[in-house]
Simulated assay, not measured.
Amino acid sequence: MTSAWNSFHLEVLSNVLGWTAFFAWSISFYPQVILNFRRKSVVGLNFDFVVLNLTKHSSYLIYNASVFFSSAVQRQYHEKYGFKEMIPVAANDVAFSIHAVLITAFTLFQIAIYERGNQKVSKISYAIVFVAWFAAAVCCLVALPSHSWLWLVSCFNTLQVTMTVIKYIPQAVMNFRRKSTIGFSIGNILLDLVGGLTNYGQMSVQSIDQNSWVNFYGNIGKTLLSLVSIFFDLVFIFQHYVLYPAKKTDSSSPHFTPESKVEPLVKPSDVDSLQSENV
């Protein structure tokens, strides 16, 4: 069981911040899904980003569910960090992970059915996913004889942190090469930023209440998740609003690229003037 809060007001604030992060992160998936649906295209959305994101959220779900529901994992956590310390996973963390896996899988389904141009999942991404789950399987074999369940779930936590660091890179590079963020929803990024900030705030409130910062280094995955997500969100925001600001006519075409914006050889006004002269 988790230890009691010292301050009722801080407990309420923590719950508000936690569920705000949950809703912001959960809703953040939908702008991209809606954009894909409206355009009937996934051109501009990097497929490696989605594939790596699915691995990230799957491993994060395993970690959150294990820590939140397993009494064995909780016992080993208290033995390592102290019985007065809170379990660093809340109900909103588990709920978010379940939702994230499902909606990311649905985004992959959209990739399969919508126009995608010449985009495809890279071999490097396939290799990363294979190595990640192979490493997870090895960790399971190592932990099984000694029943090191806390160490095992920490491996999944480390895996999700690694995927968080890696997953943003393909999309950022793709935006740079295209000199455009068209097809990649900025709404996703703005909501993700809100989720990262409020998630970090919740952890801070818990630490203040307990007068201990073990909540940060005891759940280093959640800490790094917030910091890395915030950093890349700021990179994408800078790309979208500063480096490659979208034109008003850009978002209407699923196949638009900056190179496609070319003046026609004959303007409609020229055709109208020629027709009037022949009358």
Rank of each mutant, 00 (worst) to 15 (best):
V161M: 12
A21Y: 09
A100W: 06
T158P: 00
L243D: 09
K123D: 06
K247G: 15
T223E: 04
H99R: 10
I189L: 12
L10T: 03
F29N: 10
G221R: 00
G218N: 02
G196M: 09
T223V: 02
K167M: 15
L197H: 07
P88S: 06
F23G: 02
F69S: 12
V194W: 02
P258V: 14
H240T: 13
I208C: 05
H78E: 09
D48P: 10
Q110P: 08
L45M: 15
M174P: 00
Q110L: 03
F216V: 04
F68L: 11
I124A: 11
S269H: 10
F83G: 11
L193E: 02
Y200T: 11
K261D: 14
V235W: 05
F83P: 00
I230Q: 06
W19R: 11
H99V: 13
H99M: 12
W149R: 06
N175M: 08
S148M: 03
K120D: 11
V121G: 05
D93G: 06
E115Y: 07
T20Q: 07
K40E: 13
H78C: 11
R38Y: 07
I182T: 09
S28N: 08
A91L: 13
K56R: 07
P264F: 01
G117Q: 03
N199M: 08
T223K: 00
V161C: 11
E115L: 09
F96C: 05
L141Q: 09
I34R: 13
Q119C: 06
F49C: 07
K120N: 12
A132I: 01
L152H: 05
N36W: 05
F216E: 04
R116E: 05
G187H: 04
R38I: 11
L10C: 01
V94K: 03
G18F: 01
G44H: 12
V266G: 01
T107G: 06
I62G: 04
F176C: 10
V205W: 04
V89F: 00
